[in-house]
């Protein structure tokens, strides 16, 4: 049974606990994963026990895959932390722009038309044209 066990010690200053948990979670279909840490919480011990009997080559491959996954999860976590503010800003902006216009914003000033832009062309110049046509005849 112990032949299938891989033990890895990780420094929690380098790898965030959330990244370690995410990497371990990706392996629960292939191995039994168990975590422990030292009293200071500086080192995290990961124990991966393959669910099936595997050769030394496969064991090394499992270890490599886990380390790659850990690096990937760590990078994702770092990018997520760095982009947190901009993500929140984008979502806030999207939600705010999707809100319906309140009655306070839509007050009487908004309906004023001092330049007469809202008046239809026929209404504004229709009579003038008719008068011009009559005068030509």
């Amino acid at each position: 049974m112990s032949q299938n066990v891989i033990k890895i010690v990780l420094n929690s200053d380098i790898y965030n606990l959330e990244a370690i948990l995410n990497a371990c979670y990706a392996f629960i279909d292939r191995a039994y994963v168990f975590l422990d840490s030292d009293s200071k919480g500086k080192k995290v011990r990961v124990s991966l026990e393959s669910k099936q009997v595997i050769s030394a080559g496969k064991k090394a491959q499992l270890r490599g895959d886990f380390e790659n996954e850990l690096l990937y999860c760590s990078l994702r976590h770092k990018i997520g932390t760095n982009n947190k503010k901009i993500r929140e800003y984008i979502v806030n902006r999207a939600i705010y722009s999707a809100l319906p216009i309140s009655s306070e914003d839509f007050n009487s000033d908004a309906l004023k038309d001092p330049l007469g832009i809202a008046i239809p062309w026929e209404e504004k110049y229709g009579n003038v044209k008719k008068n011009n046509a009559k005068s030509k005849v």
């Binding site: 959330e18 948990l21 995410n22 371990c24 629960i28 039994y32 994963v33 026990e49």
Partner: peptide, 17 residues
């Protein structure tokens, strides 16, 4: 049972984050 139980606790812990 021990392995599967440990994995399940790990999955739930990850969910709690």
């Amino acid at each position: 049972i021990i392995g599967e139980f440990s994995n399940y606790v790990l999955a739930l812990t990850k969910k709690c984050l």
